[in-house]
């Protein structure tokens, strides 16, 4: 026969020293804690909502053509809007200068977007130059555009628009295996060469 009384006695002693919380006190503590959590959530989400709303005003202001200065530490979406503003005014180099700040922010979606948009701007400029028969100026722009599309696709392979436009750019100026350093001569792209690579342009075609 096991003597259970000693066990109960022991457990009774063990708990005797612990002051039990009354239900009222527990309710009060719970209430205060829940209030603190709810208020913290309100403060944080309220601040986030306000700053997002405020930043959206900057973004839509830039989109409608207002020249709003933007710091390097701004949100990537704002940097993108600033870049798009600069691109519309043909200030591509200034827009390109925003890319490192976007990269630092770590937002891959925006990074891909700004690089894609920049490449588009360069490609469109190059197409205008080709129409004016300024082929020599167009080729480096097209190559920069290709690098931009590749950079965008490297960050976001699912950006199908970048794939499409990269395909267009690559057919305008085709890539070739790089010439080994043994031959010092840089590859010369002649206008005749370019036109043979322009199957997408109907001009001059039957």
């Amino acid at each position: 026969m096991v003597d259970l009384s000693s066990l109960f006695h022991h457990s009774g002693n063990r708990w005797a020293g612990v002051p039990l919380l009354s239900v009222e006190r527990l309710k009060s503590i719970l209430l205060v804690n829940t209030l603190v959590v709810a208020f913290a959530a309100f403060t944080v989400s309220g601040w986030l909502a306000f700053s997002a709303w405020n930043d959206n005003r900057v973004i839509s202001g830039l989109a409608t053509g207002r020249d709003i200065a933007v710091g390097d530490r701004a949100r990537p979406e704002i940097l993108l809007a600033r870049g798009q503003f600069l691109m519309r005014r043909g200030r591509l180099d200034e827009a390109q200068a925003l890319v490192p700040a976007v990269r630092i922010s770590g937002d891959r979606r925006v990074l891909a977007a700004i690089q894609y948009d920049l490449a588009n701007a360069r490609l469109r400029t190059a197409l205008r130059l080709i129409e004016d028969m300024k082929i020599d100026q167009a080729i480096p722009l097209i190559n920069l555009a290709k690098d931009g599309y590749r950079a965008a696709l490297s960050v976001r392979p699912d950006l199908w628009d970048a794939r499409y436009n990269l395909d267009v750019a690559m057919r305008l100026v085709r890539d070739f295996p790089e010439i080994q350093p043994s031959s010092e001569e840089p590859p010369q792209e002649t206008p005749e060469k370019l036109w043979t690579d322009l199957p997408g342009l109907p001009k001059g075609l039957p």
Partner: peptide, 11 residues
Amino acid sequence: PVYLRNDTGPM
């Protein structure tokens, strides 16, 4: 003459 896909636009 050359069709390109559009820009992403503002986010």
